[in-house]
Design a protein around this nucleic acid. Sequence first.
DNA 1: CTGAAAGCGCTTACAG
DNA 2: CTGAAAGCGCTTACAG
Lengths: 343, 343
Amino acid sequence: MGDDISSALGRATIDDVAREAGVSTATVSRALRNHAYVAESTRRKVLQAADRLLYVANSNAARLASGQTRTVGLLAPLLTSWYTSEVVAGVEEVFAHARYDLLIGTANPLAREKIFRGDARFQQRIDGVILVDVFCSEDGARQLATLDTPAIVLGERLKSVTSVSVDNARGARLAARHLIDLGHRRIGLVGGHAHLDVVHNVPTERAAGFAAALEAAGLRLPHQFVEDGDFSIEGGRRAMHALMSRTKPPTAVWLMSDEMCFGALQALRELKLVAGRDVSVIGFDDHPASNAFGLTTIRQPVRDIGRLGARLMLDQLEGFGTVMHHPIELNLVERITCGPPPG
Amino acid sequence: MGDDISSALGRATIDDVAREAGVSTATVSRALRNHAYVAESTRRKVLQAADRLLYVANSNAARLASGQTRTVGLLAPLLTSWYTSEVVAGVEEVFAHARYDLLIGTANPLAREKIFRGDARFQQRIDGVILVDVFCSEDGARQLATLDTPAIVLGERLKSVTSVSVDNARGARLAARHLIDLGHRRIGLVGGHAHLDVVHNVPTERAAGFAAALEAAGLRLPHQFVEDGDFSIEGGRRAMHALMSRTKPPTAVWLMSDEMCFGALQALRELKLVAGRDVSVIGFDDHPASNAFGLTTIRQPVRDIGRLGARLMLDQLEGFGTVMHHPIELNLVERITCGPPPG
DNA sequence: CTGAAAGCGCTTACAG
DNA sequence: CTGAAAGCGCTTACAG
């Protein structure tokens, strides 16, 4: 019924609600947005009227009038990876509830510069910005902090900007220790270079942490045991083939993402080698398909990172929130692709 | 420079551009949106002025004034599957170019009803709606067609609404034939039930096509050879375990999604069975990880489906586009999980 | 081809 | 606690 009436009359506006409730549009606006200083009885009247007319505010009008865009920008170097889409999913989940929109962009160097330097063209469309795995550094962070745009950095630990990240060095250490404890002495590493010229500190941190952990155990990481896997399935496959073609190949390999591991496992199969027996493979992420592969890996709660980032952004947007770093837990998930070295 | 000036002055509005170019705001508006009947020289002046001021139109104001929401709704039963996110990615890619926004929702029965019955609350926020794998049927389609909201249906072949879909029966036939040609006689099937009570015709069509193809070859599909895999990795694993526990298990199984196959391959590994030798497994999709699994499957170009759907929506929104069905090609990708039956 | 002006549907000081 | 009114930044008949 209400349905039919409203569709016959066209969409209800705030004026319709005001008339129906016998108050002014200003009061409707306040009542519907839970402002203080609205009499309880008035609020009820307004709510009922709005309900009767199936009223829903025109967000374009609201945003224009308030000057709030109610959208936040999200920048990431690689939009198509599982990791990024998981983060985005987490962010979106929280924002959908809060009725915020997400404007997603690739963090090519140009976009990155625009943000750091406060390009009007970008800023005018957003209330805040979330940077995912875009190398920022304290310098960039300080620049960000001077902008009037709230910012959250995901994937890096920073002082001047609120950030959330895992401890990449610790993740690397977990992987290295696991392989070392299993008895491996010849251990390989597969990382990835930056995409699109975006500087990316995550691979660097992980590589350094890994090398350090090996060193602490009296082992070396010779450059023939390091390959670039491009953070892709196919890249992981190529990297593993390269590693296995060495005259004395590694007996265990850490790849910095599970997707690269999928390719690496394919390579081993192509070489008639059995993962966990002939060569040990350990990943990073705990991708949904990893369990099916039996992949041993370092788990990071990616979606939670996105959710937390979104909530921190919301806090900043509402004026709460102090600048701080939020660490995220990492843990080893043992499955069947790791074992003692052969022989 | 221009950068600094503009940020010092705050954001440029259409009035600023009009002043700078020495024309009216109406002319700026027309020139910037490539309207006909703007003198070439005027257009140039306006474009240059806009550029100098780093002007970008406030979309909220534009939408409010024009009455266009410039957003289209997308409904799908399961938002988190690879298939859906691929479709969404394709749609978004096209919409981003056209500066349209996407409003994504779960097609729970309520939302579905709201759309079909033209709920004002939903419609007032969108210019059109794309339904992904939401069971529609000719009846629903006719209802959709009477609404003033343009609609596109993905995953079903319809007469009254523009639709794009693969031929599910044909896909099923391709899978069945491949297994039959390999010599299999005891063939299993793993599909999935509807989520969230949403009726979903895809599994039904595929199951029917599969049974028909087996029948055409003189084979039967006994109910002990049919399992529900829930279209999830874990569901595929459970389904395969169930199938393999039959007293006389199938020698080959078609699972209606690659993700279910991942779980199925895990199950085989747990049972010390080798896919392609002891049991043949064939999927549907060609997921990015499928190549790494060596999975034989029926490939569908999912992202292309999303892209096409978006373009068709754009056509409708601009008044072009006649109602028609757009078929999408399917093809067999042979890898290593299928072989002749053992013995 | 171009301009003056009304209007889109809200929000928000300002005044009471 | 509430209302009258200005204003947000565009678009679009209407007139010329």
